[in-house]
Amino acid sequence: MKQVFSFLMIAFLSTTTFAQTTWKVDPAHTQVSFGVTHLGISEVEGRFNEFDGSITTTKDDFSDAQYEMTIEVPSIDTGIEMRDNHLKSADFFDAEKNQKMTFKSTSSERVGEGKYKVKGDLTFHGITKPVTLDVWYRGTVENPQNGDVISGFAISGEVKRSDYNLGPDFPEAVLSDKVVIDVDGEFKKQ
């Protein structure tokens, strides 16, 4: 009886493993950006140019998806070198000591057709906090040029600078505490 049970467990685990699909981010067709309000009157936007990410799922509609993203903090780019250097300094990201920002999902809840609330842990600047992101699964297509199967996602959310001790010497009148995060891109089926 133990042998039959062991065989059934191995068969079940093998089926589960094979049914799981991993999708890797395509950096050439993905943007990781952020926005913060300056002096209460204008939006300053930037992006991170170096990142890696994956989505793992067993369902075609991504309703059970697990999301992971790693961002290289020194790749921050606002289009102004002086500002980028200041953001990399100990006043903000302290990028020399804190080179990576990571997100790992803990749950996903369907809230509409192709739309999900994804909860997870965001870690940067040495601090981990739970965040909730809005995920819009835009669909899956086959690239006619090379046959790759690609899924598109728009991911957005908000975090507070104060939760991560980011720029503590800059009051909200100078820089909003709220930072908007946007990831818009493509993930290739592996």
Rank of each mutant, 00 (worst) to 15 (best):
D169L: 11
E68N: 08
W23Y: 15
S151M: 06
L175Q: 03
E81I: 05
V141P: 06
T37L: 09
S162T: 07
Q99Y: 14
W23T: 10
I55C: 10
T37F: 07
N165S: 07
V179Y: 02
S108E: 13
A95Q: 00
D177Y: 03
T106A: 13
P144M: 11
P144H: 07
S75P: 02
S162I: 03
F103K: 04
D91R: 03
N165Y: 03
F12M: 11
M69L: 15
K24A: 11
F187K: 04
G139W: 06
K188Q: 09
G53M: 10
L122S: 07
V141F: 13
N143P: 09
M9Y: 13
P144V: 13
D121G: 07
D177I: 06
R161W: 03
Q31S: 10
D52H: 08
V149M: 09
D184T: 07
F48D: 00
T58M: 07
G126R: 09
V183Q: 02
I155P: 08
I55W: 06
A173G: 04
T17G: 11
K178N: 14
E45S: 14
I181S: 02
F93Q: 00
V118W: 14
F124G: 02
A173I: 13
R161S: 04
F62S: 05
F51L: 11
V135Q: 12
T56S: 09
T78E: 01
A28W: 04
F103M: 04
T106H: 08
I127Y: 03
K160G: 02
F187G: 01
D91M: 06
E72K: 06
Y116T: 12
D177N: 12
F12I: 13
S14T: 14
A19I: 05
F7K: 14
E109C: 05
K115I: 12
V174D: 09
K188Y: 01
K178P: 10
I181E: 10
E72N: 11
S63L: 04
T128Y: 08
V118L: 12
D61N: 13
D77F: 00
V180F: 11
T17A: 15
T37M: 14
G185Q: 05
T16H: 04
D148S: 12
Y164M: 08
S156M: 03
Q66R: 14
T37S: 13
S151C: 09
L13Y: 06
G112F: 02
P74D: 02
F34N: 02
M82P: 02
S33G: 04
M69V: 15
Y137I: 02
V174G: 04
K188H: 03
F153G: 11
G35I: 05
S105E: 09
K189C: 06
D60R: 03
F103R: 05
G147Y: 11
V180H: 14
G139H: 03
N49V: 08
G157N: 00
I150M: 09
N85W: 00
V4S: 10
L175R: 00
G53A: 09
P171N: 01
S107I: 06
T78P: 08
V141M: 13
F51G: 10
